[in-house]
Design a protein around this nucleic acid. Structure first.
Lengths: 221, 221
DNA sequence: GTGTATATCTCGGGG
DNA sequence: CCCCGAGGTATACAC
């Protein structure tokens, strides 16, 4: 990894055109060839960047970075204050405990926490608009599509509406109804869901893990 | 900006739990207090980060970063290879020429490229769900809502559907129909649009700029 | 502050 | 390869 602290100006043209006026910034060049320009604020987003694969051409006082997609980043240096190279070597990946994936897994094992008597037909039931997170059946025999989200927002209601539209074209499944399951549901999403006849259920993640624990204990005393 | 190259391991707990095993990485601390951990690949995303405002506690061999939201980042150092501080000063902001904004401007000047005889009623016509990009009228007098996107995707169709729902509650405007204008429209968006009676028009950005040139020449010979 | 739309989003998975 | 969905998304903007 090469770290350059320099007074520079930057031009990017590609998916849009952007210009950074002359100022002191950090220019990073990583082992995979990608380039990022950072200011002294903001942890996440670089001001400008070019992702690998790309080509870095070092000219007199400027760097030209180009990629196969025709994007172009030009860094013009006025004064280089520091320029260092560091060998980092390969790094093991990040391990995450995702929330939505686990929520879906837990709800698949215990759909009845959403509504009494609910039983699972299938996880990731495919439609031509995408997979339904959980396809269930209620005690009355009606099909229930469940969309699992960490946060229940308007987009989740729209997504579930589209799925229901498709499911209800299948006479075997129709009439299907929907449940939006989330740790929290915004008032707007709740309103829209109500207007569409969709039920919202707020799920407590920790209780859900508890339910799993209890269910396991039933079978492994 | 402080740049530390070090063998370290990282724990994050907050919106989820994540762990980075021991390896050599870059740890950046910026002037606003935010912290980012980068590996030697990927221009854009840090492996871990904490955005400002937060608090950095330097202990023996480790840093603990906490924020008011209760998130927590722990960097445990095994070996520090480099540690440097750089004064960057304030930087002027990034200027951008967006694509969607200009497309909207060009189409407002020449709505007839979307459909023969279309004329502009208003740009950014306000509804209580947000502004309609272009409100137009066709030669038959029907109101046409136009949603402008760089890429036409399902979200754009949903957005336009919600706007139409609102417009059609106004007896003065009803019955309104919709056009999704984009440089490219995905097949799924096209399918959904068809099912909703929404027209998709693919707009060639360069031709559009040409149309503007022609229109200007008509009035400035 | 909340909610919504956007992003040079990035990133990964599935057809 | 494209399309789609998720993200500790971040970020800007309106209410």
């Amino acid at each position: 990894m090469r770290l350059v602290i320099a007074r520079c100006e930057v031009e990017y043209t590609g998916r849009l055109s952007a210009h950074l006026p002359m100022a002191t910034r950090l220019v990073m060049v990583k082992a995979d060839g990608c380039v990022a320009v950072h200011s002294d604020e903001g942890a996440y987003k670089p001001l400008n960047w070019m992702s690998a694969p790309n080509h870095l051409e070092e000219r007199e006082g400027e760097w030209l970075v180009t990629n196969p997609a025709g994007e172009r980043l030009l860094v013009r240096f006025e004064e280089v204050l520091s320029d260092s190279e560091h060998a980092l070597g390969v790094a093991p990946g990040l391990t995450k405990d995702g929330v939505e994936a686990e929520m879906q897994r837990l709800l698949a094992e215990a759909p009845f926490v959403l509504e009494e008597g609910l039983s699972l037909l299938r996880r990731e039931y495919p439609t031509d608009l995408g997979p339904v997170d959980l396809l269930c059946r209620d005690p009355a025999g009606q099909v229930v599509a469940v969309e699992v989200k960490r946060r229940g927002e308007i987009g989740g209601v729209e997504q579930l509406t589209r799925y229901l539209e498709r499911l209800n074209r299948d006479p075997v499944l129709a009439p299907a109804r929907g449940i939006l399951a989330a740790q929290a549901v915004t008032p707007q999403a709740r309103t829209l869901a109500a207007a569409r006849g969709i039920t919202c259920v707020e799920v407590d993640y920790d209780s859900l893990r508890g339910v799993e624990g209890n269910a396991l204990r039933l079978f492994t005393p």
